[in-house]
Every structure is written in C-alpha cells, then in structure tokens.
C-alpha cells in the first residue's frame, strides 16, 4: 500500500503538462499510422487480382501492370495521409 502511495506521489511530480502532451501525441500518431492496415489490404488485393489477370491474359501484361500500379498508388493515399497526420502530431506537439 505504501508502495502504491509512493508511486502515485512520484507520478504526480513526474507527469507534467508537456509530458502529457507528448504522450497523447505519440499515442495519436501510433493510431494514425494504423491507416496503413486498410491500404495494405487494398494494395494486396490489387496485386493479387493483377496476377490473376496476367495468368488469364498474358498478352495484356502492359495494360494490366499500369492499371495495377495506378490503382495501388491511389489506394496508398489513405495510408500516406495517416503517415502525414502522425508526422504532424509528432512535430507540432
């Protein structure tokens, strides 16, 4: 019990406003980067379907490749936005 009280008194002194800000910004940045989850799934789906399309129609490789890359780039945007939000959070706070 006394240990707990000691811990809380320590935390009361140790936790400053600045520290709390940085803690919140760090947690927020971690959550923001999690957008990469969805965009990763999307890019994987695009790549898999592209491979399927190539196996069905090998002569259309060039068109399939460029379509796939553009689609993946657009799908990547969400993840990139998450990254930018995370960077902003870390830099601003």
């Amino acid at each position: 019990m006394s240990l707990l009280i000691e811990l809380f008194t320590f935390l009361e002194v140790a936790i400053t406003d600045e520290g709390l800000k940085q803690l919140g910004a760090g947690i927020g940045a971690g959550i923001a980067v999690f957008t990469g989850f969805g965009s990763g799934i999307g890019q994987g789906l695009a790549a898999g379907l592209g491979a399927q399309a190539v196996s069905r129609q090998p002569e259309a490789v060039d068109a399939i490749r460029s379509t796939m890359i553009v689609g993946q780039a657009v799908a990547e945007t969400a993840g990139i936005y998450g990254l930018i939000v995370a960077i902003l959070l870390i830099f601003v706070f």
Binding site: T77, I80, I84
Partner: peptide, 16 residues
C-alpha cells in the same frame, strides 16, 4: 493537394 501529398508522403517516409 492529394497528388502532392501522395508524392511527398512516399519520399518523405523513405527519407525519414
């Protein structure tokens, strides 16, 4: 803006 941010995010993350 989305075109710019896409390019920026890709290159900047690599640089970081």
């Amino acid at each position: 803006i989305s075109m710019g941010l896409r390019l920026f995010g890709n290159i900047f993350s690599g640089t970081v």
